[in-house]
Design a binder for these strands. Sequence first.
DNA 1: TTATTAAAAGACAAAAAGGTCTTTTGGTAA
DNA 2: TTACCAAAAGACCTTTTTGTCTTTTAATAA
Lengths: 146, 146
Amino acid sequence: MFNKETEYALRGLIYIKLQNLKERRPGTSEVAKEIEAPPFFIAKILQRLVRFGFLKSLKGKGGGFFFDPDKPDIPIIKLISATEGNRSFSGCSFGLKQCDSNNPCPLHEKYVPIKEALNKLITEETIQSLAEKVYKEGLSLIEVMK
Amino acid sequence: MFNKETEYALRGLIYIKLQNLKERRPGTSEVAKEIEAPPFFIAKILQRLVRFGFLKSLKGKGGGFFFDPDKPDIPIIKLISATEGNRSFSGCSFGLKQCDSNNPCPLHEKYVPIKEALNKLITEETIQSLAEKVYKEGLSLIEVMK
DNA sequence: TTATTAAAAGACAAAAAGGTCTTTTGGTAA
DNA sequence: TTACCAAAAGACCTTTTTGTCTTTTAATAA
């Protein structure tokens, strides 16, 4: 569905948001451990997210990552276009550059409502709404042993 | 949505099926040209599809690719698992190895019906049903100038 | 004002996806 | 039975994705 960078970014951002609610600013190694992502890789990903303006960071003792409280919630479609650049479900499943009702691929008609549902999902859900869901319902961001 | 190999395979198989209906057995360069795929790459892909048993081929003059008329239709989910190995929409959008109603990711609940629709689509549609649609509705497998 | 801490920057590397090309093998037809 | 044709096999290459590591920069606290 999503690539690895997007997956780690999603889990990482949600983890950071949850910690921010507890007045904490986690650093890269904490995030890596808690979401089970490769430490150096998540460091690079979080760095990019800061550059994109999704996150803020502080260096030095007590530093770490946090959300700017003044900024609006981040719909995950925005995250995805930052990490994957617009592609994905927006395109044609057959790879036609211009697949629409005028020049449909043979899957077009049945694929359109699915794409629409997906786009609705990633437009409506935000990092914050997902974090809230994790918090309220006690969900996990990693594998759990039962 | 799908990777390049799957896209080319889909378009290529449908093109071959359409030609078979006209008692023709297209070769790699014809397929490449007609579906706008890289010639050497589609050659390799068709080779693999023959090995997988989706297609038959004949070498030498008058040779080319064709479907065994005795074999059942090929649901595109079978093609996809051959070219991409089961992954895709079957997994969790968050990358959790075990994401289900017991241990759901925060997108799980809303993503499940979408996955189900996708799986229904690729289970019900076959190379042959898509070829028929292309034939009956005069669809194109490449870009068209209007 | 120095030691320590943690992110930023960026080089580097492995693996996978995507693509190209040459040689070999097995058919067909003259 | 030879000449030719087209797929099979497989080596090779490029780009993208995924991941690792070292050095630099900036903040904090002693």
